[in-house]
Amino acid sequence: MGKLALVLASGELEKLQAASIIGSIASTLGTEVLVFATMDGLMAFKKDVVENKAWKTSGDLGKGMLQSNVPLFVETFRQAKETGNLKLYACGMVMDMLGLKIDEFVDLFDDVLGVTTFLGMIEGAQVLFI
């Protein structure tokens, strides 16, 4: 129950995996989960990166995840959106800065937001910065 905010600022696969698992399980228990992808954490959702599995890994664990059949974070977030109350938001600042459009990212995002809007949405939430 309650509200959980995940700020994804890292593009490292291990961190994104952990965030997606925590967020998705929380959402199945009735927690409202709000995910804000920014900086490298947003770039990890670019279509070409996802298609080529071109994520940064911090070590052997991440490399192993890419080779084994574990569900990757994109799929885990997609499932969470289908089964629970989880929403993903893309950082508008990064997109403006790099001239990127939302259709260059995998089809997971509910909206493109600025920080002020996101801060308003997560008032009273527990926040995890990843």
């Binding site: 399980i25 084994s68 059949n69 574990v70 569900p71 885990t76 969470a80 089964t83 629970g84």
Partner: peptide, 17 residues
């Protein structure tokens, strides 16, 4: 079987729903 965390749980969640 053969699926890792959170695969089994997510499959249960979908089924139970």
């Amino acid at each position: 079987r053969g699926s890792f965390c959170p695969g089994p749980l997510m499959e249960l969640v979908k089924t139970i729903k």
